[in-house]
Amino acid sequence: MTPSIDHADPPQGKPPPLVEGKQGAKKEHSMTLWQALKLYPKAVGWSVLLSSTLIMEGYDLALLSSMYASPAFNKKFGVQTSSSKWVVPASWQSGLSNGARCGEILGLLLNGLISERLGYRRTMMGALVTITAVIFLFFFAVNIQMLLAAEILAGIPWGIFQTLPAAYASEVCPVVLRPYLTTFINMCWVFGQFVAVGVNRGSISRDDEWAYRIPFGVQWAWPVPILIGCAFAPESPWWHVRQGNLQAARRALQRLTSSDDPSFNPDETLAMIQHTNELEKSLSSGTSYCDCFRGTNLRRTEVVCVVWLVQTLCGQNLMGYFAYFCVQAGLPTVDSFNMSLGQYGLGIVGTLGSW
């Protein structure tokens, strides 16, 4: 149980916890970008590490859709048409994509339950171990049914990767850094898609099974290094406070900040976290998910949902098929992949522009 802020008389010379919390909140909200970078360089580094899982997810999601433009892949997993061309039927293309989405929905739902119980760090490590095992299914797939099973199973850790880094970044970093580190997640996603198209572009000239096995095997380049890094990452101090472990929260906060700044008082930040946690508990007491669709909360739900829907409504899911569409339109295969690389390059520029 999370201990509440004690309003009893504080020790001699020490301000009350509520006063400390207000001081911590005031300092955080008045912090400049440069001050935050100097004080929280470790938090930025750990946040970037966890966000790099989105490079892997972006790579994985773009990989299969761009492979539909690969002759060797189509010959292995597709069917021969009346024009003697090998293609993966549209029904299977849709099934593979939707299978991954089903797994992602499950992963998104599980993430909140598991991360609140086990913590962000252990949840991320479990997801990385899972995806490492699932990649074997991709690499050794002998038919399209095995690919479908791999897509569904991989979707579960992918769903965790989508949400956990954003929650971790928003908790370990001060307010001024959150817009940069949460949108950096999108850059990781786009960069992963860029790498996927580049790897496919490099192996497209092969006419054997390695034309698609090499891109599948490259997926192993991410999980192990990130897993090792996550083993040493500090847990979110907010999570420790929610678990009632204030000493662990203080240690985590010290690991996330630089010890060179004498003006930083971890007790003030810890008091702010405690006070905010108690406030959120009091506001959520007696409420349910149904309250998200009532009164003022309905407006907040609408705003959040529409902001997230923009990513899909702009045609994001069609971007992965860009090379395939170009090939179907008559553009040479290599040129189609070059066009796709340019598309994702513009995506990286767009994320920089959002900053």
Rank of each mutant, 00 (worst) to 15 (best):
E104D: 13
I105R: 12
I105S: 10
I105Y: 10
I105W: 13
I105A: 11
L108W: 09
L108S: 13
L108C: 14
L108P: 10
L109W: 14
L109T: 15
L109F: 15
L110P: 04
L110M: 08
N111P: 00
G112N: 03
G112K: 02
L113C: 02
L113G: 05
L113S: 05
L113Q: 12
L113K: 08
I114T: 13
R117V: 14
R117I: 15
R117K: 15
Y120P: 01
Y120F: 12
R121E: 00
R122V: 10
R122H: 08
T123F: 04
T123M: 11
M125F: 00
M125W: 00
M125R: 06
M125S: 06
M125Y: 04
G126P: 04
G126M: 07
G126W: 09
L128A: 06
L128K: 05
L128N: 02
V129Q: 04
V129H: 06
V129D: 04
V129W: 14
T130D: 06
T132L: 07
A133K: 01
A133H: 08
A133P: 06
A133M: 15
V134Q: 13
V134N: 08
I135T: 12
F136G: 14
F136W: 15
F136N: 06
L137D: 03
L137I: 15
F138Q: 05
F139N: 04
A141P: 00
A141K: 08
V142T: 14
V142N: 13
N143F: 13
N143C: 12
N143M: 13
N143P: 08
N143K: 12
I144P: 01
Q145G: 12
Q145V: 11
M146C: 08
L147I: 09
L147N: 03
L148E: 02
L148Y: 10
A149M: 14
A149K: 02
A149F: 10
A150S: 15
A150W: 01
E151S: 05
E151Q: 08
I152R: 06
I152V: 13
L153I: 14
L153C: 10
L153K: 01
A154M: 11
A154H: 04
G155Q: 02
G155P: 04
G155C: 12
G155M: 01
I156V: 15
I156S: 06
P157S: 10
P157M: 11
P157H: 05
W158D: 11
W158H: 14
W158Q: 10
G159D: 09
I160Y: 02
F161Q: 00
F161P: 00
F161A: 01
Q162A: 09
L164M: 09
L164N: 05
P165Q: 05
P165G: 03
A167N: 05
A167D: 11
Y168E: 03
Y168M: 05
S170Q: 00
S170Y: 03
S170D: 03
V172E: 08
V172N: 06
V172L: 10
V172S: 07
